[in-house]
Structures are given as C-alpha cells and as structure tokens.
Design a binder for these strands. Structure first.
Lengths: 247, 247
DNA sequence: GTGGTCATCTTATCATACCAGTTGGGGCGA
DNA sequence: TCGCCCCAACTGGTATGATAAGATGACCAC
C-alpha cells in the first residue's frame, strides 16, 4: 500500500473543494479570527467568482468540521477551532502556509502516539489470539526480507500497527488511528529518514508478537511503549537540532 | 455549562441535515455496505422529496466524514468507516437505532480516556506552572462547595480536565478531547449516576493539582491515571451487570 | 486482443428565482 | 424623551431549470 511510484494521480479539485480549502486555511491561520463573521454567501460567491451553490457546499463542510457556526438570517460566524474542532483537523495544522512542518504539531502527534500505542498493543494482546499472532508473524517475516529498503519497512511497520489496532476491538482506537495516519501521510517521506531507527526495530516488534501470542497484555504494553519511544526520541532529536524543515 | 433545564431548544434541522443524518445512519448501521453504490443524486432527491442542492450538500458532508468516495461521472461509493473515518464519527456510534447505548463503544471510549488522561496530566504539569495550579485550585474549591450536587460536580470535573488539556500545550490532545467530549455529551445524564464515584474523588484531583504546582510530571501522570480509573471501573461494573441501558 | 468511437449514464457547475429567519432603524404612541 | 412596534433590507434555505464534462460499457475495425 502506498508504494512510491514515478507516477502520481492527477488531482483535479472541484470548485467547492477550492473554496473549502481556502476558507479553512484562513481560519486555521487566524486570518479569520474566532467570533468574526464570514461575508455573506452571495458576497463570497461573487468575490471568488463561483456559483453560490459551490460556496454553500464549502460552507457545509466548514460547518461539519466545526470551524464555523451557521444561523439562518445571520452571517456565519467563525469558531475557535481549539475549542470546537475534532481530531480530523490535525492534518491541516501540520504544515504552515509555506509548506513547512510545524514542530509543535509533530511533537503533539508523537505524544499522542506514545500515549495510545501501549494500550493498543495491550488490547490487541488481550483480544487478538493466535490468528493475530500468525498475521503479525507473517508481516515480521516480510520485514526481515525487506531489510535493505527503509521505505518498505516503514509501510510494513504501518501495516503491523494497523493489524494491532484492528484486533484491539476498540472503535475509538481505530478511528483515532485513522485520523493520525492521515496526518503522518503528509510527511511520510520525511519520516522515512527521521524514524528509520524505529522501522528497523524488528526485535521490538518481535517482543510484541510474542506477547500477543502469549496473550500477555502487560508484556505487550511494555513492548509497545519501548518500540514507539524509539521513533519519538529520534524525532525529538531532529526537531531539537533543526528548528524547521521544508517538506 | 450545559445545566439541566425543563426546556429544550427546538431543533429545526435543515433538509440537507436530515438527508445527511439519514444517509450517515444507514452507512454506520451497515444497511449500505462498504463498496456499494449510492443512488444517483437525482434519484435521491426524488426519493427523499428534496431538491438536488440539499442532497449535494449532504453528499459533501458524507465525503468530508470519509463515509463515501465521490467521483464525477460515476456513482458515489460507500467506504468502510472502520478503515477511513476519523474520531469525529465516534458520537454516531454510541447509540444504536433505538437510542440504546452501545456497550462496546462505551468501553472503547473509556479505554481511550484512560490511555490519554495520564499523559495529559503529565504534559499539563510540565507546561502549566503556577497559573494553571491556581486555576485548578479555584475549581477544586468550587467543587468542595458543590459537594451535594453530583451534576455540578460532573460539570466542574469536566472543566478541570478541559483546563488540563488546554495547558498541556498539545494540539492533538486538545482536538481528541473535543471529539471525545462530544461523545460523552450524548449520555451526560447517564454518566452522572454511573460515574459519581469519580466526580466525588476530590482527593484525586487534589493530588493532580499538587503535582502541577510542583511541576512533577510523573506524579501528575500517576494521579491522573488513578483518578480516571475510578470512573472506568465503575462503568465496567455497570456494563457487566446490565447488558444494555435505555437513554 | 488492442484501440477507437459513441450513446448514455453520472456528477459538476451555473443562473435565477423565491421562501424564511434576523436585524436594525425609523416612526409612532405613551 | 423613552420605549415599543413594524417594516425594509439584509441573511441563509429551498427549488428548479439548463449546460458542461467525466465514467462506462457496447460495439466495431484492425
């Protein structure tokens, strides 16, 4: 999944998509401050040179993201995304307007990963059983074979955790994992280098597999924590030495 | 905030809102299976008796929630929300079609809370300082005064954690907290009774305050874990004795 | 089997109405 | 002068028409 390819799918974004992205960025960058009113739909459609329907579709998506509040008869008002928005907004906060990675956002998501991973591993060990252990074992075998290709290891590592999350029998973990994964994807290439040490920690993944096979939740928790701390520390070191990095 | 009142605001939901909710429910309940095609927009607008614009706005919101994939010229196809949707979907999974609480969803969200709360407390202790400690101390004082009213304690308890999360200096924690909070709100009244023991654990909150004041992250982590485990265990006991509960 | 053409689906966009709720200011009465 | 009410001018919400353009599968020539 998501193998690097010389071809990239051409992306045509619809008008409402463009409008949505533009407004979302202006809200996230605080150019439109919380409490302020948006221009009316008619003004927006004229200013942006698009149909009012396109504006309305974008507005509906902003409302869905809890970036604005809608009241019939009055203007749409901008909300404070720190108080209202959900985890889905995280990908939008990772890169600033010049495409540079936000160190604070990276630290945040890595902290969340460190908080969840041990419990995910523990839950998987509790519910996964022999079937999960076999699946993980097979993945680990593939990783040992792909030892030279860090990008492949990274993909396999992701699949490993995806399997753990799916087996954790926890819908919240699973949905949060999806949200976080979409954040990673934006800087997937950067992480390949920075977190290489974690992707090569097959011994740590092996400990998780053995804990799952044994149904030992505590051992899985410890092994999971040790494993993700490798990448976290590596990333902290990188952030400490370079204040910012181009994507 | 969110005080019980004999009056509830009349909810007039727009057509597109109705369409969105109806389609979302059918997808979440697996009546529309992953991979299946949605009827065309014109068919939907005719079948539901609304204009195409309303259907289109609903479709855009489903796309935003990653419940469907949109391609011009082809039918919209339903995605597997377990693989695609984000944490924002959690509130939709808490109640089944008859309004009963899903035990699995409750256990899931409580597990996630238990995973995040210790690290939130630790991060807050690291970054909060004396200002946060004073704020928490004031909240705690209010709670001691409101000792007889469990509902008030519940609200204060929420404010307590909201302050911790805001001070944690972690955008991911904050956004995830918002998402989870919207899930709780649906069963806020039920939780008042079930988690009463946690809301009355002022000693535990006091330990967190002292750890924050001392800047002791590890103490805050331990105190946070102990505190939320109270509610979690209480909820587990309730779920174990009663298989389901009406809302 | 490979590639091209075409009819016919679909969504995407546009334009223009009109309905419904909010707001604010001006006029009226006390 | 003060307070109230009403109306005009906003706002978003709904409805319906048309045109453009992508997706798809049947079909055919090579």
């Amino acid at each position: 999944m998501s193998v690097a390819s010389p071809f990239r799918p051409v992306s045509r974004q619809s008008l409402s998509e463009s409008v949505y992205l533009q407004l979302k960025d202006r809200i996230v960058r605080r150019e439109l401050t919380a409490g302020a009113s948006l221009p009316s739909e008619r003004e927006l459609s004229e200013a942006l040179g698009v149909n009012r329907g396109a504006v309305r579709e974008a507005i509906k998506r902003l409302q869905q993201s809890r970036l604005i509040a809608v009241r019939q008869g009055g203007n749409h008002v901008v909300l404070d995304y720190l108080d209202e928005a959900g985890l889905e907004l995280l990908p939008s906060l990772l890169l600033d307007k010049r495409g540079r990675v936000s160190g604070a956002a990276v630290r945040s998501i890595m902290a969340m990963r460190s908080a969840l991973a041990p419990d995910i591993a523990a839950a998987a060990a509790e519910h996964g059983g022999a079937i999960l252990a076999a699946e993980l074992q097979a993945l680990l075998k593939q990783m040992r074979a792909a030892d030279s290709d860090v990008g492949a290891l990274q993909n396999h590592c992701f699949e490993f955790w995806k399997a753990l999350v799916a087996a954790s029998d926890n819908i919240a973990f699973r949905l949060a994992f999806n949200s976080m994964q979409r954040t990673y994807r934006q800087v997937w290439g950067l992480l390949t280098r920075v977190m290489e040490a974690e992707f090569r920690d097959l011994a740590g993944l092996g400990r998780i597999v053995r804990a799952v096979a044994a149904g030992d939740a505590e051992a899985a928790r410890t092994a999971g924590r040790r494993h993700v701390e490798i990448g976290r520390r590596a990333l902290e070191r990188t952030l400490d030495t370079s204040t910012g990095e181009g994507a």
